[in-house]
Simulated scan of single mutants.
Amino acid sequence: MVPFFVLFAAATVAPLCYAAWMSLFREESSGLGFGGTRRVFSGLGNFTEALGNADFLRSFGHIALYCVLYIPAMVGGALILALLLDSALARARRFFQIAYFLPHAVPGLIASLIWLYLYTPGLSPVTEVLGSLGAHWNFFGEDEAILSVVNISAWQWIGYNMIIFYAGLQAVPREVLEAATVDGAGAVRSALRIKVPMIRSTVVLTLLFTCVGAIQLFDAPKLVQLRANAMGEDWSPTMFIYTAAFKGHDYGLAAASSLLLALVAGLLSFVVTKLGNRWKAS
């Protein structure tokens, strides 16, 4: 276990400690700025500034709306596909497992670029088909942009979570399903009353990872924002941190915001785990 802890300390613990140290300082310019900048101790000043920043707080609202749309679509879609593959009527299971998983094999940045092309009028065959049918949809509109981001994320992660659900379904005792069939339960009732309850732990684990991943969303909204100006450069918490650090050069504020984001992710993980344990025990 030593190599794991060495890598964990170098890649996780050390950056967190350094971020905590940076969050206690801020850069100040003297005079008109010709004298350069100097680092001064600010204590919790960066944290209070982040908590008082309307853009930073608004970014969590955007992510909350994103989770409301994304989590049911992704988790529900992955679970439905897994149940279909596990059904007695399924054919070519191996082919569909690979086909559904392939989008996850595409790096997130590349996937976002692909969909950015498919969203762009004049370039995308999707918009051409919609136009020929008399339908007009602005993928970069003020209200539609978040749906474009949800679509990118769901396209990339449904197949991955489908594999996890399908693996969990394989552990369901076949004799239990056979007994349900003998008792007259159809495919849908067996799926909802037997299969899904017996993979509750898998569903809870997937929800936990999905929530933690959603709050760290960056690639998709960052690229969609290039065309959807209404989103702004601080649409998500990670985008706010990126903008504060690499455009505003306020590394203290960025570090404090990062730690606050980690705290929120930890609290969210705790809540999801507690609710999941209650569901498993019910």
Rank of each mutant, 00 (worst) to 15 (best):
I110N: 07
S124K: 06
L102N: 03
L130A: 08
V129S: 14
T120C: 06
P125V: 04
S124N: 12
S132M: 09
G141A: 05
S112V: 05
H136P: 00
Y117N: 12
L109C: 13
G122F: 09
P125C: 06
P103K: 10
Y119K: 06
A111C: 12
G131M: 07
S124F: 03
E128R: 14
P107E: 10
F140I: 01
E128W: 08
W137V: 13
F139V: 00
L109I: 12
F140V: 02
G122K: 11
A105H: 03
W137N: 04
L102V: 14
G122N: 12
L109Y: 15
L118W: 02
W137F: 10
L109E: 07
L123K: 07
G108E: 08
A135G: 04
I114C: 08
S132A: 12
N138W: 02
G134I: 08
F140Q: 02
L133C: 11
V129Y: 05
L130Q: 05
V106F: 06
L109T: 08
P107G: 09
S124T: 08
F139K: 00
T120N: 14
A135F: 08
E128P: 00
H136I: 03
A105T: 08
L123P: 01
E128S: 10
N138P: 00
P107H: 15
L116E: 07
P107R: 15
P103Y: 04
Y119V: 06
G134F: 06
L123V: 09
L118F: 11
Y119E: 04
V106W: 03
L123F: 10
P107A: 12
V126D: 02
Y119L: 04
Y117V: 15
S132Q: 15
P125N: 10
E128N: 10
V106N: 13
A105P: 00
I114W: 00
F139Q: 01
G141T: 02
G108A: 14
L118D: 01
H136S: 15
L113E: 06
I114G: 04
L130W: 12
S124I: 04
L113D: 01
G108C: 05
T127G: 02
A135I: 15
E128I: 02
S124Q: 15
W137Y: 13
I114P: 00
L116Q: 12
G134W: 04
L130P: 01
F139C: 01
